[in-house]
């Protein structure tokens, strides 16, 4: 008569086996976990500190004109783009990703013309192009 729900434990079953009780974490254990996390973090910091020598510069070396000291960006060296590769209209191929409808920034200096595709001038690493056109140094930015 009690076989309607054979899989569900009855009160008697619970009495026999006992209720599963989750033991609360002891205060000593809590502290132990905290210290482990901290030690892992400090180790990571030390590794990062050694990896990026930029972090090791003394504050006096960093010029006052620089942006606020950011340890994440200190090791990153932004290489300027100087005189990038240029092609004539006939030399372009499919790998250059330049469609007819693409927007370009066109410049004319002393009779020389050059186009800078806007698609390629985006992103923090490619916003600034140092170039020479018509014998004059120019900076192209978008």
């Amino acid at each position: 008569m009690n076989n309607e729900f054979p899989h569900s434990p009855s009160i008697e079953d619970i009495r026999l086996i006992g209720m599963p009780i989750l033991n609360p974490i002891q205060p000593e254990k809590k502290f132990a976990i905290h210290w482990l996390n901290l030690s892992i973090l400090t180790l990571l910091c030390m590794v990062l500190f050694l990896l990026f020598p930029g972090c090791q510069r003394a504050p006096s070396e960093v010029a006052s004109t620089h942006p606020p000291f950011n340890p994440l960006m200190a090791g990153v060296v932004q290489t300027p783009i100087i005189e990038p590769e240029v092609k004539r209209t006939g030399e372009l191929n499919e790998k250059d990703f330049l469609a007819d409808e693409d927007l370009v920034l066109g410049v004319e200096v002393n009779g020389e013309h050059r186009a800078y595709p806007i698609n390629q001038l985006t992103g923090p690493k490619r916003e600034l192009i140092n170039d020479y056109l018509g014998g004059e140094p120019i900076l192209v930015t978008w």
Binding site: I81, P84, E85, V86, K87, R88, T89, L92, K95, D96, F97, L98, A99, D100, E101, D102, L103, V104, L105, G106, V107, E108, V109, E112, H113, R114, A115, Y116, P117, I118, Q120, G123, K125, R126, I129, D131, I138, V140
Partner: peptide, 27 residues
């Protein structure tokens, strides 16, 4: 600042056939 123009590649190369164009490898 230098005079520049933002236009489509099609019309730029049509007006200036001897133009050069900057080519960077795709990111």
């Amino acid at each position: 600042a230098r005079p520049s123009v933002l236009t489509q590649w099609k019309s730029w190369k049509e007006k200036h056939p001897l133009t050069t164009v900057m080519v960077l490898p795709p990111l």
